[in-house]
Structure formats: structure tokens, C-alpha cells
């Protein structure tokens, strides 16, 4: 079992190295994400939102649906912990 796991993980690593040969170089200024995506955010963010922190601008304005869903996720997680660990539920009766 252990050797099966190790073989799986080594093959995963080899596959990742093979795939990473097609990735752009690290810190490449001409990578597609830096050429097509980044100028859009920087220029639109400076022109329309007028706050310096572009991360906050993108997070709370351009992608505010994403942040809304993500806040819902963590709020639901809090409620889930509250319900799972609440005393007095029915399954506690047969617990030792």
C-alpha cells in the first residue's frame, strides 16, 4: 500500500514536471496573464475606482460576487460548526 502510494505520487510529480514545461517562465513579463489581463485591471482600477490598493479594488468591486459567495461560505461554516457541536441534539442521547 505504501509503495503504491509512493508510485502514484512520483508519477504525479513526473506528470507535473512534464506539464510545467509548457508553462511560461516564472516572472516572465511577457506571459499571457501579464500581457492581456494585468493591464486591464491596473488601468480600469485606476480610472474607475480611485483607491490605490488594486487588490482591494479587484476583490470588492470587480469580483464582488465572488467575495459575496466567499463570505457566505465562511458564515455558513460558522453556522455549521455551531450546529454540529451543539449540545442537546438527539444523537447525543446514545453517545457514551
Amino acid at each position: 500500500m505504501r509503495w503504491l502510494t509512493l508510485a502514484f505520487l512520483i508519477s504525479f510529480q513526473a506528470l507535473f514536471i512534464y506539464v510545467s514545461l509548457d508553462l511560461p517562465d516564472r516572472a516572465d513579463p511577457n506571459a499571457p496573464a501579464n500581457v492581456h489581463l494585468s493591464p486591464e485591471f491596473v488601468e480600469q482600477g485606476e480610472k474607475e475606482i480611485e483607491i490605490p490598493n488594486l487588490v482591494t479594488a479587484v476583490q470588492a468591486d470587480f469580483r464582488s460576487y465572488d467575495t459575496l459567495g466567499e463570505t457566505l461560505v465562511i458564515f455558513t461554516a460558522g453556522l455549521c460548526v455551531l450546529l454540529v457541536l451543539m449540545r442537546g441534539s438527539r444523537t447525543d442521547d446514545r453517545a457514551p
Partner: peptide, 11 residues
């Protein structure tokens, strides 16, 4: 835009 890194991965 060449002066700033892409903010999207950070977000």
C-alpha cells in the same frame, strides 16, 4: 501596467 504585478492571483 508594467510597473505592477497582476493583482488577480493575490485576490
Amino acid at each position: 501596467a508594467a510597473d505592477y504585478v497582476n493583482p488577480l492571483p493575490h485576490v
